[in-house]
Design a protein around this nucleic acid. Structure first.
Ligand SMILES: NC(=O)c1ccc[n+]([C@@H]2O[C@H](COP(=O)([O-])OP(=O)(O)OC[C@H]3O[C@@H](n4cnc5c(N)ncnc54)[C@H](O)[C@@H]3O)[C@@H](O)[C@H]2O)c1
Ligand SMILES: NC(=O)c1ccc[n+]([C@@H]2O[C@H](COP(=O)([O-])OP(=O)(O)OC[C@H]3O[C@@H](n4cnc5c(N)ncnc54)[C@H](O)[C@@H]3O)[C@@H](O)[C@H]2O)c1
Lengths: 207, 207
DNA sequence: ACTCAACTGTTATTTAAATCACAAAGATAA
DNA sequence: TTATCTTTGTGATTTAAATAACAGTTGAGT
């Protein structure tokens, strides 16, 4: 299958989560307009995305919920589950760990890293916190593929470099410091201040 | 000035923050390619954004840092400063409050809301936490314009409705439940699970 | 059997965003 | 002075994403 568009991948993740609820409620089929209503987008957008992954529904009953969930899984998840580390076990980092721990997805946070001795050798929602210096070792040992950065901004570059050297495949950076990494590593950045300033702008100017 | 593109607004927020550091370091002028390097984007992107806000630099020295910061301020900020509420003083909500409190921007978080009696009548990084039922009253009284939702997902719809009724102008929703609001209110949604699943996909398939 | 209503799947079009390509201008150096 | 270098500003083009438009299918109702 061809590489999917960015936005399609984001929506597939959301379709899946919406459908897990649907399934839990005992419904086995779903129409594009039902998915669309949940996410407040258009049905045609839903159908197009589903077309892109090569799945096809039935005319009378729409999509088979379990099948579609399954297929989205084969696209997003890796077979054995994806193992994730959080770097920086501060207020944001520990909130993230606790949060993901509650979900049952193929993503599991299996390690935290910090430099503060007070944070080390503790469990955060069952996840052990290791010293940052051991990052290379633990990433390999635990077969960790992705990392979330939640350290102070001043540390971002150093952390990113260590992660890349350790062989991480993807990084989600919640720090306000933009980083750049080898094109081998997929990088996603998100900055809450930017997001809130954007809300401020459009709330002020209307849209 | 015409309404700016979404992405331009996001970048302007980042340019400003980058330039605040520049200014602190004693530099008074900056070239498009210097800004671009900080954010890891192209210089032409920077120039185009700056063109859209009608500012113009000088050929030999690039942009005047203070002037550009000032102008971005008039675009994004509101004169008197923007007042923000956080609904849900849990792990994410309180992390956000603490975080924003440290920055000195025109955005200030001035109130939290919760339903849990244990959370009420306390200060989170100096911000008072009010009972959710008083939201209408406090939003008006405190002249709050924007809100961040960080309650459990099950509460999102109810919270959003209350916020809209209270006359909020913009909402940033960190809950995984999509909401829809009157087109009078600007809505931005961000879901960490989606973000991390996107990283998983592109780390797996390469991009 | 025929018609209608309600879906899906897909092509064509539009809109939004990013990039390319280059003219214009000011400083510097020969 | 004139050539050259560096940088901005912007029209033209390309790419990515969303939307529109509609053909095709199937079952229900008659
Ligand atoms: N708290 C929020 O809601 C929030 C929101 C948006 C962005 N952020 C960003 O997230 C980051 C973390 O924020 P926070 O509020 O959790 O801060 P925090 O200070 O609570 O946590 C940072 C943690 O990182 C650890 N750390 C420092 N250097 C490290 C290193 N080299 N390796 C590993 N760990 C290291 C610290 O010991 C600390 O535990 C910041 O960059 C902040 O800008 C936070
Ligand atoms: N913690 C994270 O890192 C994280 C990451 C991504 C998304 N989220 C989302 O953010 C939301 C909050 O997560 P959290 O980890 O902080 O949860 P949490 O349980 O720690 O906090 C939720 C808070 O909301 C309060 N609350 C419940 N109903 C309310 C209501 N009607 N009005 C006001 N407050 C109410 C609760 O009393 C609690 O204090 C969840 O929807 C979660 O999906 C959290």
């Amino acid at each position: 299958m061809k590489l999917l568009p960015d936005k399609t991948v984001e929506r597939l993740s959301q379709y899946r989560r919406a459908m897990l609820k649907t399934l839990a409620s005992g419904k086995h089929h779903i129409y594009s307009h039902e998915i669309a209503n949940i996410l407040h987008i258009t049905p045609v957008q839903v159908r197009r995305d589903i077309m892109l992954i090569g799945y096809t529904g039935t005319l009378r009953h729409g999509y088979d919920v379990s099948e579609l969930i399954e297929i989205i899984g084969t696209i997003i998840d890796s077979e054995e589950g994806t193992r994730v580390a959080v770097v920086g076990a501060g207020s944001l980092g520990s909130a993230i760990i606790r949060y993901f721990n509650g979900k049952r997805t193929k993503l599991s946070i299996v390690a935290a890293f910090d430099v503060n001795p007070d944070k080390l050798n503790k469990l955060y929602a069952g996840v052990p916190c290791y010293p940052f210096e051991k990052i290379q070792e633990i990433v390999k040992q635990e077969n960790i593929q992705l990392a979330v950065i939640a350290t102070p901004a001043s540390e971002t570059a150093k952390v990113a470099e260590a992660l890349v050297n350790a062989g991480i495949k993807g990084i989600l950076n919640y720090t306000p410091s933009p980083i750049n990494v080898s094109s081998q590593v997929y990088l996603e950045e998100y900055d809450m201040v930017t997001s809130l300033e954007k809300v401020a702008y459009f709330a002020k100017h209307g849209k």
